[in-house]
Amino acid sequence: MDLDALLGCVTSSSCLVTQTTSGLIVGMLLFMVAAGLTLIFGVLKIVNFAHGTFYMLGAYIAYSAFMFTGSYVLGVLAGGLGMAIFGVIFERVLISRVYGANVLMQLLICYAVVLICDDLVKIVWGPDFYAMGMPPAFQVPPLFIAGGVVPPFYIMLIVVALAIGGALSLLLGLTRIGKIIRAAAHNPNMVSALGINTTLLYSLVFAVGGMLAGLAGGLAAPVRSLTPGMGFSILIESFIVTVIGGMGSIGGALIAAVVLGLIRSFGTIGFPLFTEGLMYIAMIIILVFKPSGLFGKEIV
């Protein structure tokens, strides 16, 4: 434990700026993965344990598309689109068969998909780890803001993630389909009784969730290593985020993701050897006082 260092950091503007942006970037990428997870749970009451795999596949597809086209933007879009399609297939072929089944049966099916996809990645791309490399447009020196160091690439990531989060809220809040999705989350039978095609709706939700995870994987590919099984650590953190935020609450996921990012960035200064334990303690404390997460609906 190094509380002096932590105190020193929060009282210095350069450290505060640097660590806050680093917490934000970790948090925003996490939010994109967690948003899909929480959306799927909110509407379908499905806990998608294969969500980390969406992220992994998105990163690999983006990597290949980048290698093929040389364009980072196309790479990211390919990752998002590929995972939207994958999400629909996953929902139609597998998940649709276990709606209403026990959560453990869903867990089993998702686990099987994780196993299969990790090996498929190994077969298609090989067991080596890859790095996409920084797109030339972002191979520039970092900016200095109030004495803190902030790379332009990360500013772009934060802006893009915020934009996507904003678009998602607008979609859910203002459009007709968004209203239907929210209504379905509230009362699926009612939506179905109103003659709305729930099959299409459920596929759509998985497409959006998959796309978000795929985009996150693609966006992160220039700076993170691609290995089979890379989705797992993201999955665990996304679950912490969705549970703390309240399962089904996208706003809650945003706040929890940022909080988690900040715990990591300041925890590494104050408690360098126990950062991970800190995240679990935060989760337990929040659940003890708010048994359905910060913004979750009470389950009765």
Binding site: Q19, S22, V149, R224, P272
Partner: peptide, 21 residues
């Protein structure tokens, strides 16, 4: 200064910024 990231941690940003600080 000493930083101890987790094995297989996807993102090292907070560690890197700590080192730069």
């Amino acid at each position: 200064s000493q930083a101890w990231p987790k094995l297989g941690q996807p993102d090292f940003t907070e560690v890197i910024t700590k080192l730069i600080q």
